[in-house]
């Protein structure tokens, strides 16, 4: 018996399709342009924007001046920490309105009636956030590299505590944390009606998890065992500032050799986990939007129902 030979049908892999839908041919990628305009352009007739940009320019110049005036005695890691502080404040303030803002501005309906999936909307907005973040981190990288170079030039011995590789890895870590924070902010922006609510919630949770809980746990744990105990490492495994510190080479207690931490313990896992968290947050945001398609169902309007 002759079996008819069916020619193999080449169907594009579903991954490829998904990738096209979400990235390469996602019309929501116009958000990237919009964000660029919003945050990085002086030509738009937005005086607030120009004021904020100028403020940033001043701060940026101040940091550069600081780096140069320190004349090589400024540890780049201080700047990286500063960069992380900036990320903690800037990411929520820039992205809290991504979805809630559209609800407030009432442009959201126009997107929802269009034949575009929730995933496309969220991914488009997320990439706009990431692109902006990338530019911001890139801008910070300049003074940090200058500081690192000057530092190394001043004192090659001390420079062992800030090897270029570590400084770079720290930046990647900060970026990954920023990405997760952006996804987190977008998630809350998707879940509430007002942008300011999202901002408040994200700042609140940040304060709770990055400040209040660490102080509390630190007090409990440190008193008993000294700073370098395992419980502490475990508790703060995902704390970005703690991680930055751990990535940094340190003096041994003998003050003779440099103690380095394995990048497989501090750095790599955090970066991967942050990126993974970003994916989870985005997925969650998409699910939330599906639920919130009809915002009435999402947050019943008490006043109207009672009327």
């Amino acid at each position: 018996m002759n079996r008819p030979v069916t020619p193999p049908v080449r169907t594009p892999s579903t991954f490829q399709q998904r990738f096209d839908e979400l990235i390469t041919s996602n019309p929501m990628m116009i958000e990237v342009t919009r964000f660029k305009r919003k945050f990085l352009s002086v030509s738009s007739n937005n005086t607030v924007n120009i004021a904020v940009l100028m403020l940033f320019g001043v701060v940026y110049l101040a940091i550069l001046a600081l780096v140069f005036s320190a004349n090589g005695y400024l540890q780049p890691s201080i700047l990286v920490n500063l960069q992380l502080v900036l990320v903690c404040f800037l990411v929520p303030s820039m992205f809290h309105g991504t979805i809630a803002g559209e609800r407030e501005r009432r442009s959201w309906d126009l997107l929802l009636v269009a034949p575009i999936s929730k995933a496309q909307i969220v991914v488009g907005k997320f990439f706009a956030a990431v692109a902006t973040l990338f530019v911001a981190i890139g801008a910070c990288a300049l003074p940090i590299s200058i500081a690192a170079a000057m530092y190394a030039g001043r004192n090659p011995d001390i420079a062992r505590f800030n090897p270029v590789g570590v400084v770079l890895a720290q930046q990647v870590m900060v970026f990954a944390f920023g990405v997760a924070l952006a996804a987190f902010t977008i998630l809350f922006s998707a879940r509430v009606r007002r942008g300011l609510t999202a901002l408040g919630v994200v700042f609140g949770l940040e304060t709770l998890f990055l400040v209040v809980v660490p102080i509390f746990v630190g007090l409990m744990v440190a008193g008993s065992n000294g700073p370098d105990n395992v419980l502490m490492d475990f508790t703060f495994f995902l704390h970005p500032f703690y991680t930055l510190d751990k990535m940094q080479p340190k003096w041994q207690s003998s003050y003779e050799q440099v103690q380095t931490f394995s990048p497989w313990m501090w750095g790599t896992p955090q970066i991967l986990i942050y990126l993974g968290m970003a994916v989870v947050f985005l997925q969650w945001a998409i699910a939330t939007l599906y639920y919130a398609e009809n915002d009435v169902k999402f947050i019943p309007d008490k006043k109207k129902v009672d009327a």
């Binding site: 116009i30 919003k38 738009s44 937005n46 501005r105 009432r106 442009s107 309906d109």
Partner: peptide, 12 residues
């Protein structure tokens, strides 16, 4: 669909 209240985007 043209809603009763709608907003357009800024910056485009």
């Amino acid at each position: 669909y043209m809603p009763d209240f709608f907003g357009l985007y800024d910056d485009v």
